[in-house]
Design a protein around this nucleic acid. Structure first.
Length: 619
DNA sequence: CTCTTTGGCGCG
DNA sequence: AAAGCGCGCCAAAGAG
């Protein structure tokens, strides 16, 4: 393993240097690969957060390099050299976090990533070790040269000493441009290393192909963005903010003492206040650190238990204040903050979660309230000719569990429910059929109270909950839930056998390989934490569902629908589509979102809309 | 002053 | 024998 001591780093600052770069580029490169990276910054005087947004910041350096040589190209003066080099280069292009480079290039340059020959070592690293580090320096320290991490500190020191930011650090500063140029060298070397597992024909080749293709589609989605009704956001923000401020002032004033200010936004203060006015906590209402809980469940209990008293009234006020400020501050304020000409361009990470699920930040579009439509009503179609639709997978995790369990009875019930539903039976529903089977009572229907119990049991089970927790969540006596659990295991023994098999193989792998894990259908390895083998069943299902959803995104892409994609929400895709073609496109979307091959219980999907606002599409 | 942790709450 | 899984954002409070 070669170390980094012989590396040559150059900065383009003259026509001659530009010529040298072109000569270097035309020479033979070890694995027909060059690394590619950019450095970006905020505009002078703007928030430093802008440095990471292609909609607010600007490119300062572009860097390319191979295993031994790195070049830094100051963007303002020499971007022409970069374009010329990239137009000549026909080999592999290696990045570390292609989501970043591709989006910046897409928004701010005329160079578009050639995805079919582009690679991402961050994606590779996550596939090889889902719990490992993602940072380039840490990864190269681990896989290439121990000293790589140390080299970053020189730049950190120089920037701290001079008070520079990513927007103001001079591109002539050696620590800065050399740091940038070195990144490309590290990236190529890391790629060589990670290709041992992710390269063509290797164990993770299929998973890697899937992730790279998904990354391309999702980057398109980020650039498409989600349009919001900004006037509506401003109106709602003010309304909700004013309301929560008024409640806060009322409570703070009422419950402060002459010498001691107290606030109803402070949970510590609230505990004191509620105690004074006679409310009491139950034994189990404690946080993990032993403090008395002051959450929604406790407040709701106060409202019930102390009906007609001051405690109940205060609890009601606190709940509605919290609700209003949550909506105002977490949602509407961020919609106003992040929109660019009325469009949100969130960051969508395709491998954020250990199970390979996606996550969305700035703003967090996967967590919009759906209890009522206020928040989702902020979202409108991209333009006047389009409307919103949403396609959801039907109980995908439960269907997956049924298929994986290979339990013939469970699978048959599911398929019967599907067939009957298709035949027009409103009770054609898996939970209802399982309920009838477990209670041995065919007269029960979708509205029977037992259905909630069954559903609670099943989802609790998919997440690895014990009977006590399942009973608590469903709000029924433990004994009642225990009987459901026993009946379920009796009627569908495959479920328990599957769970057992997953945990046993996890234990065996822990003993033999030092880590418990499962392999998904596509060969992705998902490890669990030590001593928590019971989580593996959930990882199998959650990770499997995430992969199916990703494959569905690729089907939508192959059908030519990428331009219409707006937001992915784990098992749901929101799209903005032309009104004129809505029926045809919706049929196409439903087809793309459905998977029959490979699953004993088909993974079906519905499609709702078209609608003016996302709020119209709630359930 | 900034950074981290905790508790709470939104989602699948 | 028993174990609730995965995320992101905000306010408050503690730590440095």
């Amino acid at each position: 393993m070669a170390d980094l001591s012989g590396v040559r780093l150059e900065r383009v600052d003259s026509v001659q240097k530009a010529g040298e770069l072109m000569t270097w580029l035309s020479e033979r490169h070890e694995t027909n690969a060059i690394g590619f990276d950019i450095e970006t910054g905020e505009y002078l005087g703007n928030p430093t957060d802008d440095a990471l947004s292609p909609y607010h910041g600007h490119i300062r350096l572009a860097q390319i390099g191979d295993q031994n040589t790195g070049w830094a190209i100051p963007w303002d003066e020499w971007s022409g050299v970069f374009y010329e080099a990239m137009s000549r280069w026909e080999g592999h292009i290696i990045t570390h976090n292609i989501a970043f480079e591709a989006k910046w290039m897409g928004v701010q340059s005329r160079f578009k990533m050639p995805w079919e020959r582009s690679h991402d070592t961050m994606i590779q690293a996550h596939i090889v070790d889902p719990l490992g580090p993602g940072a380039l320096k840490v990864l190269t320290s681990r896989y290439v040269d121990r000293r790589a991490a140390a080299m970053q500190s020189m730049l950190d020191e120089a920037m701290a000493k001079n008070g520079w930011t990513w927007g103001t650090v001079p591109t002539t500063l050696q620590e800065y441009w050399a740091y940038g140029a070195l990144d490309t060298v590290l990236t190529v070397r890391l790629w060589d290393k990670l290709n041992e597992d992710c390269g063509p024909g290797k164990r993770y080749a299929g998973v890697y192909d899937l992730e790279m293709a998904v990354r391309r589609v999702v980057t398109e989605m980020e650039m498409n963005g989600a349009r919001v009704d900004v006037d509506y956001c401003e109106r709602k923000y003010k309304e909700l903010h004013d309301y929560s401020s008024a409640v806060k002032s009322w409570g703070d004033e009422l419950y402060s003492e002459p010498k001691k200010k107290r606030s109803i936004t402070s949970n510590q203060d609230l505990v004191k206040i509620f105690t004074e006015i006679g409310a009491e906590w139950l034994e189990e209402e404690r946080t993990p650190t032993g403090q008395r809980q002051m959450n929604k469940a406790v407040l709701k209990r106060f409202i019930n238990d102390y009906d007609g008293t001051q405690a109940a009234y205060l609890a009601t006020q606190v709940l509605s204040m919290r609700k209003a400020s949550k909506l105002a501050d977490t949602y509407f304020a961020n919609f106003m903050h992040y929109n660019v000409d009325g469009v949100l361009h969130p960051n969508i990470r395709t491998l954020a979660a250990r199970t390979s699920r996606m996550s969305i930040t700035n703003p967090a579009l996967q967590t919009l309230g759906k209890g009522e439509r206020t928040v989702r009503d902020a979202f409108i179609a991209r333009n006047e000719d389009e409307m919103l639709i949403s396609s959801d997978l039907d109980q995908v995790e439960f269907r997956m569990f049924a298929s994986l369990s290979e339990d013939p009875q469970l699978i048959a019930l599911f398929n019967k429910a599907d067939a009957d539903y298709a035949g027009g039976d409103p009770n054609g529903d898996s939970f209802t059929y399982i309920m009838r089977d477990l209670y041995n009572n065919p007269a029960l229907d979708k509205k029977s109270p037992q259905r909630k119990l069954i559903k609670g049991y099943i989802y609790g089970r998919l997440y690895g909950a014990g009977v006590a927790k399942q009973a608590l969540t469903a709000g029924v006596p433990e004994e009642q839930m225990r009987q459901v659990a026993e009946a379920f295991d009796r009627n569908y023994p495959g479920a328990k056998q599957f769970t057992q098999k997953v945990e046993d193989s996890g234990m065996r792998r822990f003993r033999e390989e030092g880590q418990g894990y499962i392999l998904t259908k596509t060969g992705r390895r998902l490890p669990c934490d030590e001593g928590k083998g019971y989580t593996l069943v959930n990882y199998m299902i959650q990770g499997g569902a995430a992969e199916v959803f990703k494959q569905n995104l690729l089907k939508l892409d192959a059908a030519g629908l990428t331009d219409y994609l707006v937001v992915p929400v784990h098992d749901e895709i929101v799209m903005s589509i032309p009104k004129a073609e809505a029926p045809e496109i919706m049929a196409q979307v439903k087809e793309c979102m459905t998977t029959r091959e490979g699953w004993a219980v088909p993974l079906t999907a519905g499609c709702d809309g078209p609608a003016e606002r996302w709020g119209d599409l709630i359930d």
